[in-house]
Structure formats: C-alpha cells, structure tokens
C-alpha cells in the first residue's frame, strides 16, 4: 500500500518534470516583455498629464527617457532555440536522478515498515494506551467518590506505567482513607523513593517507619531504611539492618539477590567484612526522632 503511494508520487512528479521536455510547445516567438512595461509607463505619463499631476515639460522629459528605454529594449529581443538532443539528455537525467536519489535518501531516514499510530485507533487496540485511559478514568472516579481500596489500585496502575509521582500521590490518598496497613505504607514509601530517582527522602523514610510500626517484619521497609543509612554514608548501620532482613528471609525470597548485592557494595565502600557486622533491627525510636529533626519536606516532582 505505502509502496503504491510512493510509486504514484514519483510518477506524478516525473510526469510533470518531463512534460515540457518530451512535448515541447511551439517554438517561442519573439515576444517583447520589456516593451510592454515601457508602453504602459508611457500610457501612465499620458494619464498623469491629463489629470494634471505633472507639468507638460516634465512629461516630455519622462517620455523621451522611456522611449529611449523602449528603443534599447527592442534591440535585445531574443528567442531561444529548442534542441532535440538536449531535451533527451535532460529527460534521461531526470528520470534516473529523481527516483534513485529519493529512494536512497529515503531509505537512510525512513521507516516504511512502521505503521502509523493514530490515537483514536490505539484507544481501542493498544494495551498501554488502554491502561493509561483506564488509569485516568479511575482517577476521575476516585476524585468524585474516594475510596482507599480504589486508590491502592490506582497507585499500582501508576506504578506499572512508571508514573511514580502519580503513584505516590495515589498511595498517600489510600493511607489517609484508611488503608492503614504495612503494605500500603511501604508502597507509598517505595513510590516516593522511585519518584525521587532512588533517594530515600524524609517523606519516604516516614512511610517506612509507619509500615514497620504496624508490622516490624515488613521486608521492603527494612530494605529501604537500610538504603537510607547507606545513602548518608552509614554503611555499617546499613549492612546491620540488611543482614537482619537477610536472616529473617526465606531461602527463596525474591529480594535476596538484590540484598546480597547491596550488602556487598556497602561493605566494599566501607572496606569492612559484612560478616563482622552483627544484624540489628531498625531502631524505630531513633528514626522517629531523626525525622522530627528534619526540615519540613518540599513536595518533589
């Protein structure tokens, strides 16, 4: 289909370009373009005299000047020729250069196999767009009729679409609407961390502390609290918290590889043996006190 359009375009253009070469009009006759202008200038002078815009002697001078131009123009009449061989050379060149050049340059830049994606079509057929629309619809519904469970779902949808700021906002609504459980708080904290490019900012820390206060074994909160320690340079404390988490995890817990990698990295930074650090559970009282000392957090995008 697209190839047919391309072919039509090229042939249309070629037809237009070749027409004057293959079917030349009658040999042009001597036509005096300059003289037309000068004669109309003469006529204008006559008109101006008639209406009294210029005096007769000025008009005379103007007439003489224009007539002189008219005379010299008459001497320059030229009629071009038309040569059959020249026409064929030009036609052949055009026929080769235009399609070939277009094809080569287009292939370097174009992507003919990629179909167009009008939004109206994608609304019905593209899962990513459909999810985005469903998310937006749910967000509107929730604004009219807020529900904690609904906001949990919305947060998960935002997170799946990697809109972490939106997710954090939704989870925040969820916890304020009664979803007071450790998972919701950890979801909120994690969304805030991801929205901040991986930095465990005070709001996130607060969420994880909340999560732990509801369930002191919540693994995600423990992991991120450790990460917060690592991010301010307290590598030993970080490893202590992570080793505590490691000890409580089942053998097949999905987070174990990540945890081991982080422990290794922190130990390498601090140049100590991770096994020399005894596992310690996060100290909620100390964390709460630290949070209380932090300046009021700015909302971040």
């Amino acid at each position: 289909m697209i190839w047919l359009v391309f072919a039509l375009l090229v042939s249309g253009v070629l037809a237009a370009l070749l027409y004057p070469l293959l079917k030349p009009g009658p040999a042009p006759t001597a036509a005096d373009f300059d003289a037309v202008v000068y004669r109309s200038q003469l006529a204008e002078v006559e008109q101006d005299v008639e209406r009294g815009y210029i005096s007769p002697d000025l008009a005379d001078a103007a007439r003489t000047e224009i007539q002189r131009r008219l005379l010299s123009a008459d001497r320059q009449i030229a009629a071009p020729s038309s040569n059959r061989r020249a026409r064929i050379v030009a036609a052949a060149t055009i026929t080769v250069v235009v399609p070939l050049g277009t094809w080569l340059l287009y292939s370097a830049h174009g992507d003919p196999g990629l179909p167009g994606q009008p939004y109206a079509y994608r609304l019905k057929h593209d899962p990513a767009v459909m999810a985005a629309v469903a998310t937006a619809k749910l967000a509107v519904e929730l604004r009219a009729q807020p529900s904690g469970i609904g906001y949990m779902q919305l947060g998960a949808m935002y997170a799946a679409a990697r809109d972490y700021a939106g997710a954090a906002d939704a989870f925040e609504h969820a916890v304020s609407l009664g979803q007071e459980n450790s998972t919701a708080w950890s979801d909120l904290g994690e969304a805030i961390v991801l929205a901040n490019g991986g930095a465990v900012v005070p709001q996130a820390l607060k969420a994880f502390v909340h999560s732990l206060s509801l369930d002191h074994l919540e693994p995600r909160a423990r992991f991120y609290i450790g990460l917060a320690q690592a991010q301010i340079g307290n590598d030993r404390q970080a490893v202590a918290i992570w080793r505590d988490l490691e000890r409580d995890s089942l053998m097949n817990a999905p987070w174990l590889p990540l945890l081991e990698r982080e422990i290794g990295a922190a130990a390498a930074r601090g140049k100590f043996d991770p096994r020399s650090v005894p596992p310690v559970a996060p100290d909620l009282n100390a964390l709460n006190a630290a949070i209380a000392r932090m300046p009021a957090a700015q909302p971040s995008q």
Binding site: I2, F6, L9, V13, V97, T102, Y106, G110, G116
Partner: peptide
C-alpha cells in the same frame, strides 16, 4: 503511514528542487 508519506514527499521535494535549480 502518513508520517512516512510526509518524509518521502520531503525527500522527493529535495530532488525536485535540485532539478529546478539546475536545469532551467
């Protein structure tokens, strides 16, 4: 497809412009 036709037309226009500048 529309986008590709647009690009193709631009490239074709480039070569028409080349002919328009040289031949006349």
């Amino acid at each position: 497809m529309t986008a590709e036709i647009g690009l193709f037309a631009l490239v074709l226009a480039l070569f028409v412009a080349a002919i328009q500048s040289a031949v006349p």
